[in-house]
């Protein structure tokens, strides 16, 4: 309930944040975004950083921009601000549906898209969505910006390709205005985190899947693509038979040794759930896909 003592600095710009990180490089330093992962860890005594650098008010890190090709999401954009933008659902349907299911009302008002992705909690809702929407994570450090594909970004539990002197400044999603997105999640009844969550973004034309990316949370020690499902969908007609076939391949290629197993669910049960929730996500995609007749 009571965090250990620390020094607090508020950054007013990205460069100031980077300077502050450099200045306190010797100390245990954490960036404070929405704080909904960090502060609970600090209050429980699990985490006691020496220095907090608050980037929540850096103006440049807020807001959603759409230029037709790309939807840019400032890292400090809160979940509720993201959901509130029409462009979000239009251009990044998978991410949109995942963000809607993060946490609860109050958490969505404070938590941020960038903070979530940088934290890389495998049971959170956004790693899988970042993968499904083919996001690029923009990481900024003393040497400027780096752009990392979501596919290369997540290393493991809370581990990412962010250097100690860097921060996530933006998440970019290629516009998927033609695509349909869905996120099916089994939340832990206590924490609300994903025991399993499957996020799909698919382009369906005339009943046939043109392209599909599928990401999963809660299953492995990081967000992962479900490649078997993607293969099964590619070029197939989106119907119950395809959904069955795809769901059957949900765990294909996953290293079962690194599958999550905890109080909430064993690895074995998670394997079962990935299939079930893949099916549910795909059924939602099917529901949301305009029928060929209606589309015409």
């Amino acid at each position: 309930m009571f965090p250990d003592g620390f020094d607090y600095y508020e950054a007013s710009s990205v460069s100031e944040a980077i300077d502050l990180m450099a200045e306190h490089a010797g100390a245990e330093t954490e960036l404070l975004a929405g704080g909904h992962s960090l502060l609970p860890a600090m209050k429980s005594g699990l985490s006691s950083p020496d220095v907090l650098i608050d980037i929540g008010d850096v103006e440049a890190l807020h807001g959603v921009t759409a230029d037709g090709d790309t939807l840019g999401i400032g890292a400090m954009t809160t979940y509720s601000d993201f959901i509130g933008e029409d462009a979000s659902e239009e251009h990044a349907p998978a991410l949109y549906h995942a963000v809607r299911q993060v946490g609860d009302t109050q958490v969505r008002n404070r938590g941020t898209v960038g903070g979530n992705i940088a934290h890389a909690d495998p049971a959170s809702d956004l790693p899988g969505a970042a993968l499904a929407s083919d996001a690029t994570i923009v990481v900024t450090g003393p040497d400027g910006e780096r752009r990392v594909s979501a596919d290369d970004f997540f290393f493991g539990m809370y581990a990412t390709d962010i250097g100690p002197d860097e921060l996530v400044t933006r998440v970019e999603v290629p516009s998927a205005a033609d695509a349909v997105g869905a996120y099916a999640k089994k939340p832990s009844p206590s924490s609300g985190y994903a025991m399993v969550g499957v996020c799909v973004q698919a382009t369906v034309d005339g009943g046939t899947v043109q392209s599909a990316r599928v990401g999963a949370n809660g299953v492995m020690d990081r967000g992962v693509r479900l490649e078997g499902v993607e293969d099964a969908l590619a070029g197939a007609s989106l119907d119950e038979a395809t959904i069955d076939a795809a769901a059957d391949r949900a765990t294909e290629g996953l290293d079962t040794a690194m599958m999550m197993s905890d109080l909430q669910a064993s690895a074995e049960f998670r394997e079962q759930l990935v299939g079930t929730y893949t099916r549910r996500a795909l059924e939602r995609v099917l529901d949301r896909t305009p029928t060929p007749a209606a589309a015409d």
């Binding site: 704080g35 609970p40 209050k43 109050q106 008002n109």
Partner: peptide
């Protein structure tokens, strides 16, 4: 204007 959990925000924030 938004509901927040005041135990998960620092006063300084």
């Amino acid at each position: 204007g938004e509901a927040v959990k005041s135990c998960t925000a620092l006063a300084v924030q």
